[in-house]
Computed example of a mutant assay.
Amino acid sequence: MSDSAFIEVRNLSVRTADRTLVSGVNFKAYRGRVLGLVGESGSGKSLTCLSVLDLLPKGLVREGEVYLERQKLEDYPSIRKLRGGQIGMILQNPMSCFNPVFTIRSHFKETFSAHGMSSSENTARMLEALKEVGFSDPEPVPDLYPFQMSGGMLQRVMIALALIMESPFLLADEPTTDLDTVAQAQVLDLLAILKQRRGLGMLLVTHDLGVIARLADDVAVMRNGEIIETGSVHDIFGNPRHRYSQKLISTHLDFSGQTTDGNGNALCL
Rank of each mutant, 00 (worst) to 15 (best):
1 M>R: 05
3 D>G: 04
7 I>V: 15
9 V>R: 10
12 L>T: 04
21 L>I: 06
24 G>V: 01
36 G>E: 04
38 V>F: 02
38 V>Q: 11
38 V>A: 13
39 G>I: 06
41 S>A: 06
43 S>V: 07
46 S>Y: 08
47 L>S: 10
48 T>F: 06
58 K>C: 01
59 G>R: 14
66 V>W: 14
69 E>C: 04
73 L>W: 02
77 P>V: 10
77 P>E: 15
83 R>C: 15
87 I>L: 07
88 G>Q: 10
94 P>N: 11
95 M>E: 15
96 S>N: 11
97 C>R: 15
98 F>R: 10
98 F>H: 08
98 F>M: 05
106 S>L: 05
106 S>V: 02
112 F>G: 03
113 S>M: 02
119 S>I: 11
121 E>A: 11
121 E>M: 05
122 N>F: 08
124 A>F: 01
124 A>K: 05
125 R>N: 00
130 L>V: 05
143 D>G: 04
148 Q>V: 00
155 Q>G: 01
159 I>G: 00
160 A>C: 10
163 L>R: 04
164 I>N: 00
165 M>G: 06
166 E>R: 15
185 A>F: 00
188 L>G: 00
189 D>P: 04
191 L>E: 12
193 I>C: 03
196 Q>I: 07
199 G>E: 00
200 L>T: 07
201 G>C: 09
202 M>I: 04
202 M>G: 08
205 V>P: 13
206 T>M: 06
207 H>F: 12
211 V>M: 03
212 I>D: 02
215 L>S: 07
217 D>S: 14
218 D>W: 07
222 M>Y: 04
228 I>N: 08
238 G>I: 15
239 N>L: 07
242 H>V: 05
245 S>F: 08
246 Q>F: 13
249 I>W: 14
259 T>H: 01
260 T>W: 03
265 N>Y: 12
265 N>E: 15
268 C>H: 09
268 C>D: 12
